[in-house]
């Protein structure tokens, strides 16, 4: 989807500010959200592309203001709700009780929810299926064009490369899951991932491109087509 998360090339965000004394976690709740997500990642509730896509579904103004781990909190709440594991009303009630310093929480009913997951309902994690193989369609050095597509769902093809031509720098010929379909449970569609090298002038135009700059980006085979005109 063409969302605010797809930031490559945007103007207006000011300077990059490095804080040399930044701790690993700047907030306690951020550390809990991140690490709860790490634990849940291994339980088969969601896959990583679905998790990323959930973040993309945030309202743009929230995406920009809720902080990085705030996006993870949003994703966790929404996926757990959709999976019928923790309901929003339950979180609302528990949060209200915490906010009013209640010592004893209203217990939740443990039945009537999709937990524990049935074995065959568990979602596999990871991007590389090591027990599978694929035959790459493109070769190192080949000129390719990024397909000019604007899917409304999850995609890892960045806006700033669409319709642009580059050269295959490296063929990552492992069997990689195609995130655009896995995020929506439409199949893993295993395929090669290519590191494609773009000249800055191709991406940003002759008047704005910085000199002697190349951008390398990893794209799935389905995001690319042979560039017949510029072989």
């Amino acid at each position: 989807m063409n969302g605010i998360h797809d930031m490559g090339g945007l103007h207006g965000f000011g300077p990059v500010e490095i804080d040399p004394d930044e701790p690993v976690f700047t907030t306690e709740w951020g550390s809990r959200i991140f690490c709860m997500t790490q634990v849940i990642d291994g339980l088969g509730i969601w896959n990583l592309d679905e998790h990323r896509h959930e973040i993309e579904l945030m309202a743009p103004e929230d995406y920009l203001t809720h902080t990085y781990y705030g996006r993870w909190l949003f994703a966790m709440e929404h996926i757990l709700e959709r999976r019928n594991i923790v309901r929003r009303a339950e979180v609302d009630l528990r949060a209200a009780e915490i906010a009013s310093d209640r010592r004893q929480f209203t217990p939740v009913r443990t039945a009537d929810r999709n937990w524990p997951l049935a074995e065959d309902a568990k979602v596999p994690w990871g991007g590389w299926r090591k027990d599978e193989s694929v035959t790459p369609k493109f070769a190192e050095g080949q000129r390719v064009r990024v397909r000019n597509i604007h899917p409304p769902g999850h995609t890892r093809v960045t806006n700033y490369t669409r319709g642009k031509s580059g050269d295959i720098y490296r063929v990552n010929a492992q069997a990689w899951v195609f995130p655009d379909t896995r995020a929506h449970y439409q199949g893993e569609n295993l395929q090669a991932v290519y590191t494609v090298r773009f000249d800055a002038q191709t991406l940003w135009g002759e008047s704005q491109a910085e000199p002697n700059l190349y951008v390398y980006i990893d794209l799935s085979e389905n995001h690319l087509e042979a560039d017949q005109e510029n072989q």
């Binding site: 907030t27 709740w29 809990r32 959200i33 709860m36 809720h66 709440e77 757990l80 949060a95 915490i98």
Partner: peptide
């Protein structure tokens, strides 16, 4: 966000 995180945990 801290409160909601605590609630979920």
């Amino acid at each position: 966000q801290a409160i909601r995180t605590e609630a979920i945990e």
